[in-house]
Design a protein around this nucleic acid. Structure first.
Length: 680
DNA sequence: AGACTCGAC
């Protein structure tokens, strides 16, 4: 370790308030590793929630709405659906339990089926995209919140359900937030129409549930004790100007002082930063004194191939410390056992949205208090833990208490299309838990208007026949429109592939350390017509070898995401067929494909300027070609792009070369208007 | 001249 003139931040930490107090009761602990596992019905009785079972049941029997706070490990999600069923509450229909993530819905259903000693898909089942493991017998149904939202389009009153449990509500995903309004409306309408009442339970892991309670007419709040171990929090005594340096010093401070079996989890902001810090850590670890012990450094972020992601679960060899450098993926999506230390930089990379420019900005920002607690909690899952916060307690006091709900940070075009498809009469005044700004709502409606999805009659907004078709696709409105236009250009098959490729995470794997290798391998797919055509030829290559994994590795293609593309494509294709569309291939005529993209994505067009830069035709702001684009070094006169992302500059991502004429023929009125405002 | 937080239908 290099000589450090200043005392390391870890030495400058002072103790803060403990997180949760340990509240052990005799006989209340789950078996630990090494103990013989208890029978599953005995395990159920050992959960903290079991003590409250009869009280809970009598409460839930009476209430139409309740908010449940359950700390981590309280067992609320697995037990409450079973308690309801066992008490005969809601048996006339189905109890739905929604989750923000697919894996959670699937694994929870598996766990509950096991506890009920039934086969998955009978009494207990799950529904997520591409997978429906339910039957006529299913009474307890775990599902993604997005899935319930889709179902609501066909059945706004949610008539199959007697109870809807909105779990992980504190995460405030767009889907959960929209569902709040959907279940509230369904509840009211069912009451008005004298239908079977709908019970709604909101479950949260954090205490800030006033908002939820208020939203449901001051619904009672029930508390459940959890089984979180105590976590000691330390703050820095002084502000840190360089959180990466502070993290580095803290890692090695802990490494020198703590037993090697204690793993460290560090929260950072992104891939590049993580890879760089990993390199630095490995370099330093090589030159440590012998009494220090070895260290294995494992990066963790979403775009890492699955094999490498799995490395975080492997225990380090005995006598070696495991240090995990992670994005916020480890806050909720990936749970790693055995973490003793959390180092929280207090920073996160997150999207912001400015409604007037319609621009999504990806920026490194401060976390919220709730997020900081969530991070700290990752240290106390099996045993007591420690969390080093690389900021002062005063700084922490200045953090926002909750993360701004996603619905206030994103483009609302999809949400508005969905609400309109749900036949909500007045979308402009929809009863959101947290209202997005009126500007954001108006911008979204205008975008839908320009796409021809809505019509306005004296303050009322309704879907056009085209809009209704668009809503039937699980796609952003502009992609849905592009698919619907594709038969006119005889290239539906190609457009389906392209849209599928764009609607999943990137299929391209770009390990920074092997950049030149990646570039040379990728050369054979690259098209001067842009990224869409390039992606199309990669997909063809993948199909030609039958999805061969070896081929994927050689070509730096993410095979998991590629597999997903194929699934999305066949789902979209089925919807097209149901709508009676003619699906043709353009047989290599890429001009038609690009023309179709121009017609669907005309709102995302940019024009080359005499100075060599670009200007977005919609907002008239200067934009640049993202370095990841195959057109990065080219200077096409006109392009359409997938999205704008502001990082160090305002970048266009995923570009397609187009003719100016195509844009004008796509939306003559729109461009006449844009050119006028552009000149003035 | 230079880059990609996390999810989901």
């Amino acid at each position: 370790m290099p000589h450090d003139p200043d005392p390391p931040p870890a030495k400058r930490f002072k103790p803060g308030s403990p997180f949760f107090r340990l509240n052990k009761k005799p006989g209340m602990l789950l078996p630990r590793k090494g103990n013989a596992p208890l029978p599953i019905d005995v395990q159920r009785k050992h959960l903290p929630i079991y003590q409250a079972k009869s009280q809970l049941i009598s409460q839930l029997r009476q209430l139409h709405n309740a908010v449940l706070i359950g700390e981590t490990g309280s067992g609320k999600t697995t037990q409450i659906p079973q308690y309801l069923y066992e008490a005969g509450i809601g048996r006339q229909g189905v109890v739905a339990v929604t989750q923000p993530r697919r894996v959670a819905a699937i694994s929870l259903a598996g766990r509950v089926a096991e506890e009920k000693k039934t086969q998955l898909g009978k009494l207990v089942g799950y529904t997520v995209r591409f997978e429906d493991v339910t039957s006529a017998e299913t009474k307890l149904k775990f599902m993604t919140d997005g899935m319930l939202l889709r179902e609501a389009i066909g059945d706004p009153l949610l008539q199959r359900y007697t109870v809807v449990i909105l779990d992980e509500a504190h995460e405030r995903t767009v889907h959960t937030d929209v569902l709040f309004g959907v279940v509230k409306t369904a509840q009211r309408k069912r009451r008005e129409q004298n239908k079977f009442p709908l019970k709604v339970l909101v479950m949260s892991a954090t205490m800030d549930v006033d908002l939820f309670s208020q939203y449901f007419n001051k619904a009672p709040v029930l508390y459940l004790e959890g089984r979180q171990h105590p976590i000691q929090i330390y703050y820095t005594k002084q502000q840190q100007s360089d959180y990466l340096q502070a993290a580095l010093v803290s890692i090695f401070q802990i490494h020198q002082e703590a037993p090697l079996s204690h793993d460290i989890l560090v929260f950072l902001t992104g891939q590049e930063e993580i890879e760089a810090l990993a390199r630095t850590c490995r370099d330093i670890a090589k030159h440590l004194p012998e009494n220090c012990g070895p260290m294995t450094v494992i990066p963790l972020y979403a775009s890492l191939p699955p094999v490498q992601q799995l490395r975080v679960f492997q225990p380090a060899p005995k006598g070696c410390r495991k240090v995990i450098l992670s994005t916020n993926i480890a806050e909720t999506s990936v749970t790693i056992s055995g973490i003793k230390f959390v180092i929280d930089t207090g920073m996160v990379k997150a999207k912001k949205y400015s409604p007037d420019s319609g621009l999504e900005v990806l920026a490194v920002q401060r976390v919220s208090k709730a997020q900081a607690w969530q991070r700290a909690g990752r240290a106390g899952r099996e045993d007591s833990g420690l969390c080093y916060r690389l900021y002062t307690e005063d700084e922490f006091d200045g953090f926002a208490s909750m993360t701004v709900p996603e619905i206030q940070r994103c483009n609302l075009a999809s949400v508005m299309l969905q609400l309109l498809a749900l036949r909500i009469p007045d979308v402009l005044n929809f009863d959101f838990v947290s209202k997005p700004s009126p500007e954001a709502i108006c911008t979204a409606i205008e975008q839908l208007d320009v796409l021809g999805a809505v019509e306005r009659k004296d303050d009322q907004v309704t879907l056009t026949p085209l809009g209704k078709k668009m809503a039937s696709f699980p796609l952003e409105p502009r992609f849905a429109k592009t698919v619907l236009l594709s038969p006119e250009f005889s290239c539906a098959e190609e457009v389906l592939t392209i849209v599928s490729l764009l609607s999943v995470d990137s299929v391209l794997y770009n390990p920074p350390a092997r950049r030149e290798e990646v570039q040379s391998v990728r050369r054979k797919f690259i098209s001067s017509e842009g990224d869409h055509v390039t992606l199309l030829s990669i997909y063809r290559g993948f199909k030609n070898v039958g999805g061969n994994k070896e081929w994927c590795r050689e070509n730096f293609v993410n095979s998991r995401n590629m597999g997903l593309v194929a699934e999305v494509r066949s789902q979209l294709r089925e919807i097209c067929i149901k709508l009676g569309m003619t699906l043709e291939s353009s047989r290599g005529d890429m001009a038609n494909v690009r023309r179709c993209l121009a017609h669907g994505l005309f709102m995302n067009a940019a024009e080359l300027q005499p100075d060599g830069g670009y200007v977005a035709l919609d907002s008239h702001q200067p934009v640049a070609i993202h370095p990841s684009s195959v057109l990065f070094q080219a200077k096409p006169a006109y392009v359409v792009f997938n999205e704008l992302l502001q990082t160090s500059k305002c970048y266009m991502r995923d570009l397609c070369l187009v003719d100016a004429d195509w844009l004008h023929e796509a939306a003559p009125e729109y461009f006449r208007r844009k050119l006028r405002t552009g000149k003035s």
